Simulated scan of single mutants.
Amino acid sequence: MRRKSALIGASAAMMLVLAACGGGAEETPETGNTGAAGGETGGAGVEDTSLTIYTARDTNITDFVIAEFEAAYPEFEGNVEVLNMGAQEVLERVRAESANPQADVWWGGTQQGLATGAEEDLLAAWEPEFAADMDEAYKDSEGRWFGEILLPEVIMYNDAALSEDEAPQDWDDLLDPKWEGEIIIRDVAASGTMRSIYSAMIQQQSPDGSDPEPGYEWLRQLDANTGEYAANPADLYLKLSREQGTVSAWNLQDILIQSETQNMPFGYVMPESGAPVLVDGLGVVNGGNTEAAELFVEFLYEDDLRAQLAEDFFQIPAVEIESEPEWLANLDLNPMDVDWDVIGEHETEWIDYWNANIKGQN
């Protein structure tokens, strides 16, 4: 539900930077050379200070975090290369480069995508300090990937065109013929968010995954109401803000970022039957610059940085933080009962079937 007045946004300095940057990006205030973790860290003693990161994170989150990392470890300044792409694209690229790894960190991916990468020996096993207190459900048992944030998937709508009460209140409401042509969906195959939402809808119809047909029928009806498939998140935001459609399905964090820091006309509804809650995480690429990668991952989990990412970028951390921002403390989260193991086993075949036999055909 929309809580614009109660949400804690970024600081005034952050907003000045945002205004200067434009382009739908979220920037946060400059923090000097102390780093988000407080005080000058420095002195990493890493031999190779080059670092390549493949990430599904928004560019302004990555810009902010990399700036903080380089402030904490000046020896990395100018040596961190970040490639932003869809979560599924990260998996496919790391897989394609496995014989000659080009990335050091895989940052941003669903637990089912990261689990696939771990099974294919694409991720290195290790024991970071922060993992000791992490919920077992949020990490790989062999230390190959770790949850960073929790992403509730909700119903998104243009709040300049619809009131909260007028927007769909639950997933099945999206199938109502009154929404024909009003729904815009981020192209599913390349998006970890959309793959997870669609897979969760199938798994709700078939708990053990043995009979996806009822779920496919649900997706056929959704496809019939879908006016457009947006090529990427920026395209989705643009089309929805221009009222080329008024309704979508997307993750809560990005909706809040676009609404609260970019003044986009977006609201959300927490679905009555529950929101699939993804564990979105990261891992160290097997065969990359392991020492630098591990240093970066450890930095990501420092409490002050996690608290700032929660405050300014609306992240729900997968680890406990000392102080929660008001929006998070007041979040009325309604998790859907989802079996992510079943989804991990069947997601590829389900999405491939949707892509070949349902998308745009209804």
Score class of each variant (00 low, 15 high):
Met15Gly: 12
Asp170Pro: 09
Asp280Pro: 03
Leu328Ile: 09
Gln244Ala: 14
Asp121Gln: 14
Tyr54Ile: 14
Tyr216Thr: 00
Trp145Gly: 09
Glu164Phe: 14
Leu282Trp: 06
Glu260Val: 08
Glu129Arg: 09
Leu16Val: 09
Gly43Tyr: 12
Ile321Pro: 01
Asn362Trp: 08
Glu345Gly: 11
Glu320Ile: 08
Ser141Thr: 02
Ala37Asn: 15
Tyr198Asn: 10
Val277Trp: 01
Asp254Leu: 14
Ser50Ile: 04
Ala19Arg: 12
Asp121His: 07
Val338Asp: 02
Glu97Leu: 10
Glu127His: 11
Gln112Gly: 07
Glu129Asn: 10
Tyr73Val: 12
Glu347His: 10
Asp133Arg: 09
Glu322Met: 12
Ile53Lys: 13
Leu238Asn: 04
Arg186Phe: 03
Gln258Cys: 01
Gly86Trp: 02
Gly86Glu: 12
Glu326Tyr: 03
Ala12Pro: 06
Lys4Asp: 12
Ser11Thr: 06
Ala99Glu: 15
Glu97Cys: 13
Trp327Ala: 02
Glu243Ser: 14
Ala44Gln: 13
Met270Tyr: 03
Thr59Gly: 08
Gln169Arg: 04
Trp126Gly: 09
Phe313Trp: 03
Gln308Met: 07
Gly9Tyr: 03
Ser199Glu: 00
Glu180Tyr: 07
Leu175Asp: 06
Thr193Tyr: 03
Glu243Lys: 06
Glu47Thr: 14
Ala329His: 07
Ser210Lys: 00
Phe266Met: 03
Arg144Met: 04
Gly43Cys: 15
Glu127Phe: 02
Pro265Ile: 03
Met85Ala: 12
Ile8Tyr: 04
Asn362His: 11
Asn355Gly: 02
Ala292Lys: 04
Glu322Arg: 11
Gln205Met: 06
Arg242Thr: 06
Arg57Glu: 14
Asp303Tyr: 10
Leu91Thr: 08
Ala71Phe: 04
Gln112Lys: 12
Ser50Val: 05
Glu136Arg: 09
Val277Met: 00
Asp312Thr: 09
Thr49Ile: 07
Val105Met: 11
Met194Asn: 14
Ala44Arg: 09
Glu77Asp: 14
Val342Ile: 11
Asp280Asn: 15
Asp208His: 04
Gln244Thr: 07
Ser5Trp: 04
Leu282Phe: 06
Pro128Asp: 14
Pro29Arg: 03
Glu302Lys: 14
Ile53Cys: 13
Tyr54Trp: 09
